[in-house]
Design a protein around this nucleic acid. Structure first.
Length: 498
RNA sequence: GGGCCGUUAACUCAGAUGGUAGAGUAUCUGCCUUUUAAGCAGAGAGUCGCGCGUUCAAGUCGCGCACGGCCCA
C-alpha cells in the first residue's frame, strides 16, 4: 500500500500510466528512428517548398510535446527537439483508430516520434502531417504552465531542467556559454598553446589568496585541498618545457555566495614563455575583440544598460594613478600609512591596522575606483605585498609587472609577468607565511616543491587568469552569476513529498 | 554577518480594515477534422513554507526558524 500523499494531478498521470501498461503499450521504447531534426524540416521547406508537400517526402522526427489542441478526430500539437519547435497535425484517418486513441491519452511533456509529410495550414504555418505517431517517453509529472513558464528563481536553479524546458532564453545562455569556451579554446590552440589538466586536489593549496575546501584521502592517509587556482602547477609545466600552456577548469573557494560568487567557478589560466605582462594585455584585447565578434557579431556589447566597446585600444593606468585620477585621492597621502588609514576610515572602509600599505591601497581601490571602470581598463603596477607570485618591476622594486582587467565595474582578469627567481619567490612565501601567522587566513603557504621547480629554471614568462563565469555574464547580459552556472550552489531544501 | 522583500492549487498570481481560500493555465468528464495562450458545457483539486504566541476566530497580527531573491559588509 502506498500511503504517500500525492497530488490529484500526479495520481491521474500514474493511473493513466498503469492503464496504458496494462494494454501492453511500451511507454519507454528506444526503437524509434529519428532521421530528421526540426531544423532539417525547416531548411527543406525553405529550399524546395513545393516538392516537400507531396506524400512521398517523409520526415521522421521526435521531440517533447509542449502544447496540444485536441479536436474530436484530429489534433494539432507543438513539439520541440534540440533545434527548435514545430507543429504537427494528427488525423484519426491518417494514423489509424488505435494510434489516435493512444494519442488522446498522451499529455503535454510526453516525447513523441512522428513520421509524416509537410503541408501548410490555412494560416500559412508549415506543419507535419503525421502518418505514424508513437509515444517515445511518458512524462509522469506535468510541466509548468505554458504561458508564464517557470519564474520562481529558487525552483529554476534547483530544477534547472525545468528552467531549460520552459524558458528558451535560459537555454540560449548556456548554449552561448558553451560557444564562448569553444572560441577561447580554439583561440589558444591556434596560437600554439597546449591544453593541460592539473590537479584539482592539492596537498598545498596555492596560486591565489582564498580559503580552500579541505578533503581527505583515506588510502594515502593525507589531507588534500580542492584547488583555489591551478597557477603553481601550470608554471611547473612551463619549467617542464610547455612554453605555451592553458587550462579551463573549475576552482573552489570557501566564500559566501552572491550575484558575483559561486563556491566553484570556472577559470581560464594561460602561461606563455618569453612574454611579458604587456604582451598579455595586447593578447587580452585581441581575445575579447575576437570573442565578441564570434559570439555577437560585433566588437561591442550592451551590458546592464552600458555600451561596452572591446576593440583596441583599452585604457591602461597604474594603480596609484587610478586612485588619484579616478578615485580622487590626494596623492600625498598614498605613501603615508597613518593618513591612509584615517582616509579609509573616514570613507567607511573597514581596514585593520595590521594591514600593510599595499592591502590598504587595494581595498581603497576596490571601493573608490573599481565600480567606475565600465569600459575595459587595465590597472597596472600592483604593490609587491599583494602580488606574491609576480615579477618585480625593473623601475620600482616595490611594484610588480602586473595588471588586472576591469569591465563593467568588475574584475575580469588578472595577469602578470611571472616571478621566476626562486630566492625572491621563497622570500615572498616567507612573508606570506608570517602574514598567515598574524591571522590572514588567505595568505599563501610555503610550497617548497614549487620553489624546487623554479630552482631548475623557469624561462621568463607571463600568465593570466580570466573568470569564465563573469565573462559569460558580460556576453549574456546576466546580472547574477547564477544565471550562467547550470547548477548554482544552494542550501539543501526540506522538500515536501509530492 | 546586517537590512529589505518573498514563500497561497502542478505553474503564474489575487486575497484592505483578522470572520468558511480565489482566478487563469494545467487536470478530469462530454462535444468538436485547420488550431495558434483554440472554443463550448460541466467537475475536481490547497498541511496558505515550518513552529510558537495573541484572539471567540489567523493566509492576514507578533515572535522565532527554514529556504530563496536583492542590497550592504
Amino acid at each position: 500500500m502506498d500511503l504517500e500523499k500525492t497530488s490529484e494531478l500526479l495520481e491521474n498521470r500514474r493511473n493513466k500510466l498503469s492503464e496504458l501498461r496494462d494494454n501492453n503499450i511500451n511507454l519507454f521504447p528506444n526503437d524509434f528512428k529519428v532521421l530528421h531534426t526540426v531544423q532539417d524540416i525547416r531548411s527543406a521547406v525553405k529550399e524546395f517548398p513545393e516538392s516537400k508537400t507531396d506524400d512521398e517526402t517523409v520526415f521522421s522526427v521526435a521531440g517533447r510535446m509542449m502544447a496540444m489542441n485536441l479536436f474530436g478526430k484530429s489534433s494539432f500539437i507543438r513539439f520541440k527537439d534540440r533545434t527548435g519547435q514545430f507543429q504537427a497535425y494528427i488525423r484519426k484517418d491518417k494514423v489509424g483508430d488505435e494510434a489516435y486513441a493512444l494519442f488522446k491519452q498522451l499529455d503535454i511533456g510526453d516525447f513523441v516520434g512522428i513520421r509524416g509529410s509537410i503541408f501548410k495550414t490555412k494560416t500559412g504555418e508549415w506543419t507535419i502531417l503525421a502518418f505514424e505517431l508513437r509515444i517515445v517517453c511518458k512524462a509522469i509529472r506535468p510541466l509548468p504552465e505554458k504561458f508564464h513558464g517557470l519564474k520562481d528563481p529558487e525552483k529554476r536553479y534547483r530544477q534547472r531542467y525545468l528552467d531549460l524546458i520552459m524558458n528558451p532564453e535560459v537555454r540560449e545562455i548556456f548554449i552561448r556559454r558553451s560557444k564562448i569556451i569553444q572560441v577561447i579554446r580554439t583561440f589558444f590552440l591556434e596560437r600554439d598553446y597546449i591544453e593541460a589538466e592539473t590537479p584539482m586536489m592539492q596537498p598545498i593549496p596555492g596560486g591565489a589568496e582564498a580559503t580552500p575546501f579541505q578533503t581527505h584521502h583515506n588510502a594515502l592517509g593525507m589531507d588534500l585541498f580542492l584547488r583555489i587556482a591551478p597557477e603553481l602547477y601550470l608554471k611547473r609545466l612551463v619549467v617542464g618545457g610547455f612554453e605555451r600552456v592553458f587550462e579551463i577548469n573549475r576552482n573552489f573557494r570557501t566564500e559566501g555566495v552572491s550575484t558575483q560568487h559561486n563556491p566553484e567557478f570556472t577559470m581560464l589560466e594561460f602561461y606563455e614563455a618569453y612574454a611579458t605582462y604587456q604582451d598579455l594585455m595586447n593578447l587580452t584585447e585581441d581575445l575579447f575583440s575576437h570573442l565578441s565578434l564570434e559570439i555577437t557579431g560585433s566588437t561591442s556589447i550592451v551590458y546592464q544598460g552600458n555600451n561596452i566597446e572591446f576593440s583596441r585600444k583599452w585604457r591602461r593606468i597604474s594603480l596609484l594613478k587610478a586612485l588619484e585620477e579616478i578615485g580622487g585621492i590626494d596623492p600625498l597621502i598614498l605613501n603615508e600609512k597613518d593618513k591612509l588609514l584615517e582616509f579609509a576610515n573616514s570613507n567607511g572602509i573597514k581596514i585593520t591596522k595590521r594591514n600593510r600599505t599595499g592591502k590598504i591601497i587595494t581595498k581603497l581601490f576596490d571601493v573608490l575606483v573599481q565600480p567606475k571602470l565600465i569600459q575595459p581598463t587595465f590597472v597596472t603596477d600592483y604593490p609587491v605585498e599583494v602580488s606574491p607570485l609576480s615579477r618585480r618591476s625593473e623601475k620600482d622594486p616595490a611594484l610588480t609587472d602586473r595588471f588586472e582587467l576591469f569591465i563593467a565595474g568588475r574584475e575580469i582578469a588578472n595577469g602578470f609577468s611571472e616571478l621566476n627567481d626562486p630566492e625572491d619567490q621563497k622570500a615572498r612565501f616567507m612573508q606570506q607565511v608570517s602574514d598567515r601567522q598574524e591571522g590572514d587566513d588567505e595568505s599563501h603557504c610555503m610550497d617548497e616543491d614549487y620553489i624546487e621547480a623554479l630552482e631548475y629554471g623557469m624561462p621568463p614568462a607571463a600568465g593570466e587568469g580570466i573568470g569564465i563565469d563573469r565573462l559569460t555574464m558580460l556576453f549574456t547580459d546576466a546580472a547574477s552569476i547564477r544565471e550562467v552556472i547550470l547548477f548554482p550552489h544552494m542550501k539543501p531544501q526540506v522538500q515536501r513529498q509530492v
